[in-house]
């Protein structure tokens, strides 16, 4: 069991190392959209400060959404997903590994780079710790939920925008509590309750999403 998980994780990371542009793309996307907001709102630092928590969180959400579509795409196209489905072990374990690898390659770098974006958007320094913590927990939930959408649509030739339609409604609670946490911190209040709620969502998602992902993958492999 451990061998399977280690092998899957190792393979996903190896693939990312061989094609690093797939890891960098969401980050560049994040940066680009962060640049768009001041252009749209205006350079007034007070206004930017006000919008920064929401902007940072929405952009992080969109960047994850963009990346999540490819979570199983390559494996489906070349047929290695079939081999995984036929493995004697239950499918939800490798599914969880794929999500974890995906989070390591998108959510975690986004979180680590977020202070830079926060400074560009004039987010008060005292909120940066909360921003990182909320993104750390929140992007993991986003990857897990996104994995369900990716698993359900990977067998479709015209997946594309469909996955956004399926997943964005489920992202609503994460966005609400994630951006609220940063807003609270920026206003000088404790964001602990919001972070705890995000932690709760993460626990629930870790417990349930792998099963939905496994079910989705089986259906998609069937369709292929």
């Amino acid at each position: 069991m451990g061998r399977l998980l280690a092998a899957c994780l190792r393979r996903q990371l190896l693939l990312a190392v061989r094609r690093p542009v797939e890891v960098v793309n969401p980050l560049v996307f994040f940066l680009l959209v962060v640049m768009l907001f001041p252009l749209g709102i205006g350079p007034d630092p007070r206004q930017l400060t006000e919008f920064a928590p929401a902007v940072l969180w929405i952009v992080a959400l969109l960047a994850t959404l963009l990346a999540v579509e490819g979570m199983f795409r390559g494996d489906f196209d070349d047929g290695t997903l079939e081999q995984l489905v036929l493995a004697p072990q239950p499918l939800f374990l490798p599914a969880l590994t794929y999500v974890f690898a995906h989070w390591l390659l998108t959510g975690l770098p986004l979180t680590l780079l977020s202070p830079l974006f926060a400074l560009m958007l004039q987010l008060p320094g005292k909120a940066i710790g909360t921003l990182m913590l909320s993104l750390l927990l929140g992007t993991a939930v986003l990857s897990l939920i996104g994995g369900i959408g990716a698993a359900l649509t990977v067998g479709l030739k015209r997946g594309g925008i469909l996955i956004s339609l399926l997943i964005i409604p489920f992202y609503v609670p994460v966005l609400i509590f994630g951006s609220a946490a940063v807003q609270f911190a920026a206003a000088g209040n404790s964001a602990q309750p919001q972070l705890l709620v995000l932690g709760g969502m993460l626990s629930l998602a870790v417990a349930l999403a792998p099963f939905a992902i496994a079910a989705g993958l089986r259906i998609s492999v069937d369709a292929g």
Binding site: R11, L14, L15, R18, R19, G74, D75, D77, D78, G79, T80, E82, Q83, L86, G224
Partner: peptide
Amino acid sequence: LLYLGHKAGVKTLL
């Protein structure tokens, strides 16, 4: 069981 299908079953990056 072992199944060998139409798809390549090989990751080209590896």
